[in-house]
Amino acid sequence: MDAIRTENLTKKYALGWRRGRLLALDKLNLHVHEGEVYGLLGPNGSGKSTTLKLILGLISMTSGEARVFDVPCEKVQSRLHVGFLPENPYFYKYLTGAETLEFYGRLCGMKGTHLNKRIDELLALVGLAHARDRRLAGYSKGMLQRIGLAQALIHDPKLLLLDEPTAGVDPIGSKDIRDLILRLKETGKTVLLSSHLLAQVQDVCDRIGVLNLGKMILEGRVDQLISDQRRVSITVQGLPETAREKVMETVRAAGGELVSIEHPQTTLEALFLEALNKDKRGAGEHD
């Protein structure tokens, strides 16, 4: 059974009197398998958020069908096993971190020591145990994103829908969120995330689908999509300059074409994280 299954899912928004309708999603056939991390990619206005809202039953579909664990999305039961993190979540500023989780837990039918234990677990999981009694008005953007993840996980859902989970978060926070997604995957959760930060999606997703103007234009496994089957890359270390010429000759002799010789580059993100790790000063020790 697929965690999410849509068949010819179409959404048209009314633009107002005598202004017609805007086609936001065009016959989308999306199948997200249980236990996988699926990335929904696309530029702004491509239909990513519309897809998530349709799956959550927040808006009504124009035609087609959408199911979550085989339950039609229009039914409230379809959300029993779903956790959702909206893009740039705000939450209730007047509640503390623990109160926020208690509120969402109670909405999911949780109570008593079971709920309290779960709140402690999640605050520890997202690294907010120190801020449990602080009101959300005093949380940073990254902290809000993390409390958002915690509320999405409060009832231990089987499926997580994350709308731009790393948008506006610094590289460390972004990496934490990606690590958390991978940990959730290990525990058997299914994750559907939308993003336009392609490099970050590449690290965590098993499969991706690219939406443009409401249509799915590309879909497949990340490793297959990004690997260039025509080229081979060999990375060596400690090769003397003299030996390089021999390698080039061997390649030519075997009929291969040498495209380039270069020093492999690291990513800016890896460089940034490495620099921070080397800086052993604790918080509060800066100028």
Binding site: K53, L56, L58, V76, Q77, R79, Y90, L107, C108
Partner: peptide, 14 residues
Amino acid sequence: ENRTIYTILAKPVR
């Protein structure tokens, strides 16, 4: 405006 309605109605809440 604060999108808190999304987080509530995304739970099993009528």
